[in-house]
Amino acid sequence: MQLVVARIGRAHGIKGEVTVEVRTDEPELRLGPGAVLTTDPAGAGPLTIETGRVHSGRLLLRFEGVSDRSAAEALRNTLLIAEIDPEEMPEGEDEYYDHQLMDLDVVTADGTEVGRITEISHLPSQDLFIVERPDGSEVLIPFVEEIVTEIDLEEQKAVINPPPGLIDDRAEIASSREDAPGQEES
C-alpha cells in the first residue's frame, strides 16, 4: 500500500537540498537516509534520500543525483510516497493512517448516522474528516479528542460527540451585546 509521506517545497541553498512539508507522524522512519520513495508525478522518481536535517524548524532533504539548485527546484510540489504493509499500524496509541479511516461510518454516541468519511484534510492546526452525508451533502468534522470520541476499526465506525451546530442547525448564538437599561428598540 502506498502512503504520501511528504511534499517537496522550494530549493534551499545551492547544493540540491529541498524543504519538505512532512505528511507523516513518523518522519524518522519514512524520511531517513537511504529511504527510496516513489513520486507523484511518477516521472520525478523514484528518489533515494541521501541526507536529511532540520534547519529553522523545517526538514531539509537531499536526494541522490540531485546536486544543484536547478535540479532541486525542478522537484518542487512533488509528492513523496512510501510503500507500507497494509497491516502495519502506527507506533502511537490512538494514531491511524488515512487509509484506515477512509470509508468509516460516522455516528453520534446515541447511534444516529451522520455519514461516511470520504477524505481527510491535514491542516496546520488539526485534521478534518470530510464526511459525506446520506443526502449527498458534506460536513467537516475536526479530528480532535473532544469531538471524535472513538475509532473502532473492527466495526468500521467513528463515534462523535458534536457540539451544537456542527452537524445540525441547532447552533447556540450568544450575543456580546445586551440591551442597555432604558434603551428601547425603534
Rank of each mutant, 00 (worst) to 15 (best):
D105Y: 02
D135L: 02
S67N: 14
S137Y: 00
R116W: 00
D110C: 01
N77P: 07
T24N: 01
L75D: 13
A74H: 04
P90L: 10
E93L: 09
Y97V: 04
G32D: 09
A44I: 07
I141V: 15
V18K: 05
V114N: 01
E21N: 13
V139P: 08
L75H: 05
G111N: 03
R58M: 14
L60C: 02
G92D: 15
F129H: 01
D110G: 08
D103V: 00
G136E: 12
P134A: 06
R69F: 03
G43C: 12
I120Q: 00
G57R: 12
N77Q: 05
R30A: 07
E21W: 11
R53C: 06
L101Y: 01
V54D: 08
D110I: 07
E145C: 02
D103G: 03
P124W: 07
E146T: 14
E91G: 11
M102H: 15
H55D: 11
V107C: 06
R30M: 15
E88T: 10
E83M: 07
D152A: 06
I120T: 02
D105A: 12
L104Y: 00
E95L: 11
A42I: 14
L47F: 00
D127Q: 09
E132C: 02
D68L: 04
F143M: 14
S56F: 14
E83Y: 12
L60W: 07
D105F: 07
T38R: 15
A35S: 15
E88A: 14
E113P: 11
G52K: 15
Y96E: 04
T112C: 09
T19Q: 13
R23W: 15
I130Y: 10
L31Y: 08
D25I: 10
D127T: 13
I120L: 10
